[in-house]
Amino acid sequence: MTMNSFKYIPGESHYVPEQAGVDAAVAKFKTALLHRLKRSAYVYRIDCGGCNGCEIEIFASITAIFDAERFGIKVVPSPRHADILLFTGAVTRSMRMPALRAFHGAPDPKICVSYGACGCGGGIFHDMYSVWGGSDKIVPIDLYIPGCPPTPQATIYGLAVALGLLEQKLKGKNHVEEEGEGAELIHPQTPLDVRVRIERQARLLAGYKQGREISDRFVNLLETHKLTSLKRHVQEWLEEENDPRLKEIVGQLEKTLHATLKGGSRSA
């Protein structure tokens, strides 16, 4: 195993990174390590050119609030003490060698974890000229913890999965279109332009998420009640929520509704 494991390729793509290999004997030890580690896991984090969001979350997860030390997970200052290596960041070209040095510095057997969106697949930087796009390009990875950044809860969950304390939940999915499969319309009872204008106005005022929730509630009221009693039901809803912002937005929605029903083409 050479440390400077570059493979030279003539032509436009000058270099491809070559993954540092693992001996068969070490791989055997690794399974034993995973069984024995259970409550004493020393973690060393290697920042391969991330934004420091991941580091902040790693340190958040060893604070009193999340307390990863309940499971014996401890962050150590040297790779020589480590059982688990956390690779964060998209692996910039200049951080490749230091990362490999830390990898080789840690005693075998060790568990390598790809941490965060950049570590798992390059994240938002995956196609930049200056990155290798993921830590699995340079070292053999045993566990992936996605997230941007992973919350402390996700960190604890991920490390617990690595140590065999919790089960992996996410599975790959593959859907193939079935015969007669079709998308359902949103609010099929309401006329299309009424629904679209109300939703558009609500999203304009409250953002896509809250706007959709508000417009859904409003259109549901419109579908279940008569137009004459709508005012009363809307009033009940507003009193229940008691939010001046919601009151203003729903007032605007009512204006939009009446403008649309009158046949005006403007969206109020």
Partner: peptide, 13 residues
């Protein structure tokens, strides 16, 4: 948020 996986293939949908 519980998305940690051993195999990269499980991250694809």
């Amino acid at each position: 948020f519980e998305l940690a996986v051993f195999n990269k293939e499980d991250l694809y949908e």
